[in-house]
């Protein structure tokens, strides 16, 4: 598979502040790549460097084999961009905006069809300054698609969208992918990344702290699967003694780590045998979100410790 985006040793400094501290990644063509990270991690900075809107401090960036800063003119027709805060001419309607872009790009999209695709057809004749936040976002997405781009950069495309609209956008992204387009998106919704992305990277203070497929990240950074049962705390030491598993009690529940699926049956049988009353139970595995929160939390703790005076 050819590489759509290749980034090597990318750095960006704003004066003293290192917003991006040397990152590497590759996005194969035809895949969805999700960039995750807490506020201020450097996601927008990175995306805008890839789009050719910001000049990088160091490293190399190749978008479809071109340098976005110097070859912007030739890349423009091949990439689509939805910025984090999309703004447009206040007095222009959604339909007019698309017609405008259509002429600028010299393409022949049907505004109605494009607006229907992003579920904004009912607002085709509404002026930009009368659109709601989510509707503006949808128009931004429609404009990003007017030139039928090979790569779409979507910076927080679903922020501010209602649950229904978010699912519609997921549909758009899946369609892009199935028609061979590359999508680079940033998001704060981990389940979205898990659902859509072939690969994700978690950015923290300008550095990538984990990357891979969502499953790989959960496997290598997540905790083992757990069985959680509603029972008295006394159950925990009993299970530790009888089964040699690790278990702990909290909030009226006892949580037991499972080495594999079969462990669950063993543990349940032991609980039943113990004679301690118990109620509902469930098994739990880490989601990408759990991993994200733990990873970022640990990094922050680490940096806090490092920054604390000795």
């Amino acid at each position: 598979m050819p590489t759509a985006i290749e980034v090597r040793g990318l750095t960006k400094q704003y004066g003293e502040l290192v917003a991006v501290g040397g990152i590497d990644f590759e996005v194969p063509a035809g895949t969805v790549f999700a960039f995750l990270g807490p506020n201020g991690a450097g996601k927008t900075t990175t995306v805008e460097i890839l789009e050719g809107l910001r000049r990088r401090t160091g490293g190399t960036v190749s978008i479809l084999g071109l340098d976005p800063w110097t070859d912007g003119a030739s890349l423009r027709r091949r990439v689509g961009v939805l910025p984090q805060e999309f703004r447009f001419f206040d007095k222009i309607t959604a339909r007019e905006a698309i017609e405008y872009y259509r002429t600028l790009f010299g393409t022949s999209v049907d505004p109605a069809e494009l607006l229907a695709r992003v579920e904004l057809l009912d607002k085709a004749e509404a002026r930009f300054d009368t659109l709601s936040g989510g509707q503006k976002q949808k128009l931004g997405l429609a404009l990003a698609l007017t030139n039928d781009p090979e790569i779409c950069f979507l910076d927080e495309p679903t922020t501010g969208l209602d649950p229904h609209a978010r699912r519609a956008l997921w549909g758009v992204i899946r369609n892009l992918r199935s028609s061979g387009r590359t999508v680079f998106l940033t998001t704060h919704y981990l389940e979205e990344a898990e659902l859509l992305a072939d690969r994700v990277a978690i950015l923290h203070r300008g550095r990538i702290i984990a990357s891979g497929t969502p499953a790989e990240i959960v496997r290598s950074h997540g905790r083992p699967a757990r069985l959680s049962v509603e029972a008295a705390p006394a159950l925990a030491p009993l299970l530790v003694r009888d089964l040699g598993v690790s278990a702990r009690a909290a909030d009226g529940r006892v949580e037991v780590e499972l080495a594999d699926r079969h462990d669950a049956l063993r543990v349940l049988a032991a609980i039943d045998r113990s004679g301690i009353p118990w109620d509902s139970f469930s098994t739990e595995v880490d989601t990408l979100e759990d991993v994200f929160v733990r990873l970022v939390g640990r990094m922050d703790e680490g940096t806090l410790k490092a920054e604390a005076p000795a």
Partner: peptide, 13 residues
Amino acid sequence: KEGIFRELSLTPL
């Protein structure tokens, strides 16, 4: 300030 020029810079205009 509103980023409209950046928006336009991504088009052939």
